[in-house]
Design a protein around this nucleic acid. Sequence first.
DNA 1: GATGAATGAGTTTTCATTCAT
DNA 2: TATGAATGAAAACTCATTCAT
Lengths: 213, 213, 213, 213
Amino acid sequence: MAQRSRSVPRKKPRQERSRATVDAILEAAAHILVAHGFEDTTTRQVAERAGVSIGSLYQYFPSKEALITALFERQIQRVLDVCTEALQSQGSPSTQQVVRDVALGVMKAYAVNPRLHQVLISEGLKLGMMERVQSFEQRIETVVRTFMLHYSSQLRSRRVELATFVITRAIRGIIWSAAIERPELFEDPELADELGELMLGYLLPTSPSRSAK
Amino acid sequence: MAQRSRSVPRKKPRQERSRATVDAILEAAAHILVAHGFEDTTTRQVAERAGVSIGSLYQYFPSKEALITALFERQIQRVLDVCTEALQSQGSPSTQQVVRDVALGVMKAYAVNPRLHQVLISEGLKLGMMERVQSFEQRIETVVRTFMLHYSSQLRSRRVELATFVITRAIRGIIWSAAIERPELFEDPELADELGELMLGYLLPTSPSRSAK
Amino acid sequence: MAQRSRSVPRKKPRQERSRATVDAILEAAAHILVAHGFEDTTTRQVAERAGVSIGSLYQYFPSKEALITALFERQIQRVLDVCTEALQSQGSPSTQQVVRDVALGVMKAYAVNPRLHQVLISEGLKLGMMERVQSFEQRIETVVRTFMLHYSSQLRSRRVELATFVITRAIRGIIWSAAIERPELFEDPELADELGELMLGYLLPTSPSRSAK
Amino acid sequence: MAQRSRSVPRKKPRQERSRATVDAILEAAAHILVAHGFEDTTTRQVAERAGVSIGSLYQYFPSKEALITALFERQIQRVLDVCTEALQSQGSPSTQQVVRDVALGVMKAYAVNPRLHQVLISEGLKLGMMERVQSFEQRIETVVRTFMLHYSSQLRSRRVELATFVITRAIRGIIWSAAIERPELFEDPELADELGELMLGYLLPTSPSRSAK
DNA sequence: GATGAATGAGTTTTCATTCAT
DNA sequence: TATGAATGAAAACTCATTCAT
């Protein structure tokens, strides 16, 4: 008779019907969350959009918070998958290529439904999930940091930890802003180029013209 | 008998006492907003903290939305003031200095109560104030762009408009993240250095080692 | 085609397995009812503890009310059995013995799971089962009254009907209170003695010292 | 900014209107509680019967539980007042009179809205107010015990503490049962007589005919 | 102007009950 | 027959807003 946390799915779906219901609910929640924000997302709305009764929603998610948490986990997994895959470089690429890969990897990661990511992070913080949020972002940081350490000889010497923070948050800030304020930029190949340049200039050894500061 | 918009202050405070009341309310709202987030900020709480009755609050702000809007305007003004002042460069600074100034100016701007800024932006979006949000950020962009155009000959040629977007959003992303996840970084002088490096590498002419892409 | 009442078991268990299931359900219901109280007893909980599915529970009991009713009947039978047996006096006991037997008999009756008894009575009232409750308690009264009438010549003359009410309810009140507030009293042999004294003083012919009222 | 318990009135009514509202709510709650029982008493029902909005109810009672608690306090006070007043014996009454006074005092106490008393006790237990319930009943016990100790020389020697428990619970049991099952008995003067006899026989020195057990 | 009591629509959540598999 | 996923009415409670004093 283990005590169940309120933020944990009430039960695992065993049958196909269940799984479909759970998926529909999560999908609906993601949609409405992005469209309305957390507080304006009502459980009734989610259930309705998912095409299930409010009772069914609560059968699988014991609270609104649990629903968000589940969505969070799914998003975390997707983002990490994308990021990790992007940074699985093989061969011996040029330094430039390495840096561009970092930029592109982080960018791709944060571009996985950035609006949802943003809402989840912001709500996660309010829901007392600071630790979870931190660990989430830190997992991305870890992937990036590992990658950078591997090529550190080619990179400008610096505090890798701080650099990783700067890189990931800078790119995240750009991606999120683009998602919200300038969605058309996602179509613009130059955005990726600019991110590449931003990272190159930051990570590569100092150029002669800058050394004279 | 023009219909008054619901999002506009009901009346201008004419007397000193009124102004003091309005200020107290805005101050209280800012505090609670940062501490609790928008939805957990109740008008009653704000009135209480401001030391006025709920009725008085509604005398000055016809709705919660109007209160947020007013706070938004105040924040906009403060941020712009800081940004503009920081970018009032005189003399003929070195290119490096120019770039560092941009970085520092934007950083200072976004460091004006970054948590509040963030909540306001995020709520502004929900409240259908997208235009206002855009124009807010664009006013900062304008200051930055103007500054950059002035020194464009010394900077790496690029789409200035896009570059401005990238710069402001990157720095904003870093500042916001630091405010939430790593507040201790605000004490770390290296953070400003890193932002300077990030901007230098991005804005300065391509270094030899990078030209060979 | 008589309409089946909603408060009556849907079907009689014909097979052994059915009977076992029904028993398990009733046992579970009794346990949870005592532990949590009526409103905090959910049918799902009962089914779980009984080790059957919620569907099965409803196969045997068409409603929560029917379940309570069935439990009620079982409790009635048990209480009456205990009471009747206790009052099956043989031989020609002394007057004192008779009175003590009454006290002990009633006490034993109400001590059969007193918490459950209490919940059932209280819920029976809410469920509009006033008649059933009345008839239940009256059956105990009947046993007691019959017994008393049999020895009435030795008892102080009085309205037997009223006396029976007083006796049964007084003892019930004490037993219930002990069950809830002072469970340790059940171990204390003096409690039974006190009940005996209470009944002796009440039922025996008036003593000299009292006649002078 | 002291933390307020959830079971405590949210604020003290300062104005007349407020006091009237609070009274109306408590009155309505008492009525519905007696008629329907705790769980079938909805806050909306109470508000409706009190002629106020649901919001007003929650302005004064932060939870359903707080409402019940407030009612409880009021009932406690009334019952104790009645009991204490009844046992303020002056002069030097006969032993019989003393005992009858005890009986009558306890009876009167438990006859103050006995249905409400019963519901409150039973709900108090569920609400984790066991301590409060205990202390309530113990305050009545205290009044009774004090009274008895005062006349103990005239009473049959026994464990006063246990005797007090037996007396109060016996009478409570009878009164409650009468209130529920036989309300007409309240009109019957013989009921009081019977309670007196019950107590006399229990508390007075053992009569000769009983000593020979 | 200032106050704070009153309002009630709207939110999360529970749980008895049904019925397709 | 047994199962447990699905249902939805109904309950407790919140909070922006109004308005009599």
